[in-house]
Design a protein around this nucleic acid. Structure first.
Length: 192
DNA sequence: AGGAAGATCTACT
DNA sequence: GTAGATCTTCCTA
């Protein structure tokens, strides 16, 4: 298991979205390592994209998207949180939403935090995986490539299946764009 | 100060 | 499939 380099995230979000598929999201939570393989992502492009949070300019909420590549952007929607990885250079507000994980370690902790037994339902959605890994607004703007951070993205050189590309989920604008990616045949994605 | 919208999830039918 | 929960942020007044 090796940490990722920050330079990985300086590329376009649709490139990063595919690169981090198959990598592992690692959370240090109360002396336990809670982790899962990233099996589903979505790209949100800088500016001019009506579906992106950054479309209407910089606000307190989307501040992290304007920051440097490789840091987290955590936002809340209804009663849940979702976590993104910021991409491209500082000042360009693009990001990749992590939509689903295949649980790897700390599964009992996930079950407690989620109050759900079925392993396929622990992390099969952006709000669910944040609950399972206890990711909150406190974790906004965490450097995911640093070994100092309590949330990281790492690689275990897993050889994954081919990547399926579809339209994004749950948004009302620009929903026709093919910017959602997931691992073919994986059982832990949020939907087909 | 109040209201509306949202990159969601669960529990029903 | 659809309703309802119920949080944060932004917009308007």
């Amino acid at each position: 298991m090796i940490l990722t380099n920050q330079s990985l995230y300086r590329e376009k979000p649709e490139v990063v979205a595919k690169k981090i598929l198959g990598m592992v999201l690692v959370r240090k939570y109360q002396n336990t390592i809670v982790s899962g393989r990233i099996v589903e992502t979505e790209a949100y492009l800088a500016n001019e994209h009506p579906a992106s949070h950054s479309f209407n300019g910089r606000t307190k909420r989307n501040e992290a998207m304007f920051g440097d590549a490789g840091q987290s952007y955590v936002y809340s929607i209804h009663r849940y949180n979702c976590v993104n990885v910021v991409t491209e250079v500082k000042g360009v507000p693009s990001a990749v939403l992590i939509r689903a994980l295949e649980p790897l370690s700390g599964i009992e902790v996930m079950r407690e935090l989620r109050n759900v037994e079925n392993i396929k339902r622990l992390c099969s959605g952006p709000g669910k995986l944040c609950q399972a890994l206890h990711i909150t607004k406190e974790d906004n703007m965490t450097r995911l490539f640093s070994d100092q951070s309590s949330i990281q993205i790492a690689s275990d050189h897993y050889k994954h299946n081919s990547i399926v590309t579809t339209t994004r989920v749950g948004i009302s604008k620009a929903k026709e764009l093919p910017l959602r990616f997931y691992l073919a045949g994986n059982q832990y994605i949020s939907r087909k």
